[in-house]
Design a protein around this nucleic acid. Structure first.
Ligand SMILES: [Zn+2]
Ligand SMILES: [Zn+2]
Ligand SMILES: [Zn+2]
Ligand SMILES: [Zn+2]
Lengths: 145, 145
DNA sequence: GTGATAACGAGAATCATTCTCACCGCAATC
DNA sequence: GATTGCGGTGAGAATGATTCTCGTTATCAC
């Protein structure tokens, strides 16, 4: 779904599959997310949408859309930016993120091994697991040169 | 250090050990953190400090102090509150947090096993690790009854 | 003590996010 | 074809946590 060459129909299907009504604005937000290889803030996406196509879309609509899409598990939110959220159109299976502190490159992590550890910790403290966030930050090889 | 019966001298030592100058306000913030078993926001701590001893301490000072203490690794910050940070006076060794989504009980996690996984992931993608956040959320046994 | 420096307090400023509300688009109904 | 219902939208105001400013004050080495 990430590929930038996804068609409008692909996006409409994606929304429908997650019980989200299709609107022009929601499609535009998705299209903008799809061409972003890393992540982007609501503010950034809004500015791009305005500039790119002179599209008339409200800031509040961008926030509403992202928050809805996040709730419906269509996009992921990353919190590595301290003070504002970032959004990303990711793969559909559960994963975590590895972010370069310098160039903000985002890599999806789906390694095995973590879930065992998680399960053990929740069990040991007699907690019923409801959520977890794991965010890894580092310097990618390009940024170390 | 967490025990609420820590003396003023203990707090002064703690600050000195982390290269933080001792002031009345910083001691008051520490004392307030020490009697909080879980975590607290800057706003909350400020209100308590004002009410408790009618202490005259500025909100900006509470923010400055917490941010300094966090930078100097005297307190931990938790981000599970979406929109504001929580602070906690924790143990001095590296650990993570398990938080009850209902009663906000905080448990420090120092299980082994995670760091191996982390190292492997960073290495596999040729990243130089600089930081990581792991926050587990669940329901504690009391809150499931 | 004295002076240099760092910390404070109060209130203003910032800035991401959310709220309000009048208006619009679309679909089902008359 | 007009009407009505309703969720979605846009613009701007409101919110609220955090940071900044600046005149004042505490701290510390000498
Ligand atoms: Zn996971
Ligand atoms: Zn990089
Ligand atoms: Zn760790
Ligand atoms: Zn609980």
């Amino acid at each position: 779904m990430k590929p930038a060459q996804a068609t409008e129909q692909d996006f409409a299907d994606l929304l429908a599959r997650h019980d989200v009504q299709v609107t022009r604005q929601r499609l535009e937000v998705l299209r903008e997310l799809a061409v972003e290889p890393n992540d982007a803030t609501a503010q950034t996406l809004w500015k791009r949408l305005r500039e790119r196509s002179g599209a008339t879309i409200g800031l509040a609509t961008v926030y509403r859309t992202l928050s809805l899409l996040s709730e419906k598990r269509v996009v992921d939110t990353l919190a590595h930016n301290e003070g504002e959220l970032c959004y990303r159109l990711c793969g559909e299976t559960h994963h975590h993120h590895l972010v370069c502190a310098n160039c903000h490159r985002v890599i999806e992590i789906d390694e095995q091994g973590l879930s065992d550890w998680l399960e053990r910790v929740f069990a040991k403290h007699d907690f019923l697991a409801t959520a977890h966030t794991v965010e890894l930050t580092g310097l990618c090889s390009d940024c170390r040169k």
